[in-house]
Design a protein around this nucleic acid. Sequence first.
DNA 1: TCAATAAATGCACTTCCGTTGCATCGTCTT
DNA 2: AAGACGATGCAACGGAAGTGCATTTATTGA
Lengths: 138, 138
Amino acid sequence: MKEIEKRLTENGVRPTAMRILIYKYLAEKDAAISLTDIETAFAKAERTTLYRTLRTFEEKKIVHQIDDGTGIQKYALCEPGCDCSLEQDLHLHFHCNNCDETVCLTEHKIPHINLPDGYVTEDANLVLKGICEKCSGQ
Amino acid sequence: MKEIEKRLTENGVRPTAMRILIYKYLAEKDAAISLTDIETAFAKAERTTLYRTLRTFEEKKIVHQIDDGTGIQKYALCEPGCDCSLEQDLHLHFHCNNCDETVCLTEHKIPHINLPDGYVTEDANLVLKGICEKCSGQ
DNA sequence: TCAATAAATGCACTTCCGTTGCATCGTCTT
DNA sequence: AAGACGATGCAACGGAAGTGCATTTATTGA
Ligand SMILES: [Mn+2]
Ligand SMILES: [Mn+2]
Ligand SMILES: [Zn+2]
Ligand SMILES: [Zn+2]
């Protein structure tokens, strides 16, 4: 548990009880998590606190935000040492049309694309949708 | 103008006055359009009508929806003969962080990605963000 | 140790956008 | 002309993100 406190502190986030709980929750899930997910998991907690915790985690590069096309913002823990604002750390995400879960495929980086002159690329988002390995039954 | 009526009819959409206007509006813009954009352009028209027009256009493959990561749904005319539900017609989109416009790069297809066993890909979305050619000043 | 200060949390409220239900109106068919 | 069906208008709803401000909790340093 000291692990988590250390991780938070190193990233400039004070390790409050709630934050540690949320971190743990994110760590034990292999799918990306929405604010509503967390709200459901911690029914007694304040929505705003959860909201701001996720925002803080994102600012401090503890989690990265995922836009999977559902219109709902999701979050997942960053790999240690990952800086998701750098092109080399941008990976693709997979959204399952069956179970509605979104997962990070951190080993699959977003391929570099050459654009016509005049275009300057600063960021990229690649989401594949279909059936995940759990749901395809193999 | 008969052109537009023909296009709509061919796709199974009855060419009402409003629909023709909206089609023209989409045709003269080179950027993707949001419902709010259209609402502003046709201030006297009913929001719901515009909304349903876009939905109908999408169902009938006259436009495709674009998720550019802003959280706002955008639409752009499909190329003639394009079926955006097919992998081969999936192209990438570019969102400018400066002018906030999103454009189709129809000549840039989304590269095929090989996923681990068990994953079945049905759809893909690739959005690049940065500075567009207009804004980069060359 | 205690007061001053800063950060985190709780509560209420707002805004934005997408969406739906239902009544009305217009158009096409027979 | 009557009936059927599709399009439009109006009103309201719902989810999710976001903000302002009061209150509580933690940190600092006198
Ligand atoms: Mn990820
Ligand atoms: Mn497009
Ligand atoms: Zn699944
Ligand atoms: Zn631009």
